[in-house]
Design a protein around this nucleic acid. Structure first.
Lengths: 143, 143
DNA sequence: ACAAGTAGTTGGTGTTACCAATCAAAGTAG
DNA sequence: CTACTTTGATTGGTAACACCAACTACTTGT
């Protein structure tokens, strides 16, 4: 008995709904990314860097990926001029990852496209319903 | 102007909420899958086969993946005894994919685990809120 | 000062995913 | 009824992704 409210059948229904929406969102991000030659993971990297300038370890934690995986991701993004490593004087082992100007432009444009596409997906919901949806989703705890 | 209701800022907020929830769900599916040595994609395959017995092409369409990718996925799942190809007498080019007994057991167990984990994520929502969330998510159109 | 721990990269392996090409079976002309 | 086209699926080739184990370089603790 994991939770007080909700029968097993209702848990199933909620799970299906969340999973379906999740796949739709993933497909959307993949599609928009592909239009700019970015994988889903690269899209996530750019999205994070829009608001943060993390170390490699922080970026890996945020993505839920191994550090070595992130090394490769940042390598490839840097090779394309989207991202750069900034060395840190306080701790010379670590470096922070940051968007270049080109990377920021791409990230902002992509964010706009995605946001418009999500709005199109939610076209059947009125303003109140959208607010409710956003609130309920925000109250789902990640773990 | 993609949609009548919702300012650009609210579109952004909704997008963030959906994306966050989507990543949480993806992480959950990945984690549960990994506990059974299944990739996210394999989890999706088993989930689909729980309710369908599709041809390779139908499975590929459902997953949004190339047919050749699905060939490999089914190969590996078949090698593990989770899945089998059933030849079709009506059209001898095509075959349907179906869960084996072991595959069905794994799929059902996994679905239970996932459903419990989602219920745990939604522990902050009461019964009405869960129903509302499920309804709103269902009304988001995939495209 | 030296042992232990941390940040990041490298090398190796397997999976995922695409495309182009191929093969077999069905469908469609002529 | 043969020839052309289309469709279902697989194969081969390539690249990205993701893990682990091992390593280097730097920092911290005793």
């Amino acid at each position: 008995m994991t939770s007080a409210p909700g029968s097993a059948a209702e848990d199933r229904a909620l799970t299906d709904a969340v999973a379906q929406a999740s796949f739709a969102m993933t497909a959307l991000l993949t599609r928009v990314g592909a239009a700019h030659d970015l994988s889903l993971t690269q899209v996530r990297v750019l999205a994070i860097l829009r608001n943060h300038e993390p170390t490699m370890a922080q970026l890996a934690d945020h993505l839920g990926l191994d550090r070595s995986t992130v090394s490769g991701l940042v390598d490839r993004a840097a090779k394309r001029g989207l991202v750069e490593r900034v060395s840190n004087d306080e701790d010379r082992r670590s470096s922070r990852v940051r968007l270049t100007a080109a990377g920021r432009r791409l990230a902002e444009d992509g964010a706009d496209e995605i946001s418009e596409a999500v709005a199109a997906m939610a076209v059947g919901l009125d303003v109140d319903e959208r607010r409710t949806l956003r609130d309920l989703l925000a109250r789902m705890r990640p773990a």
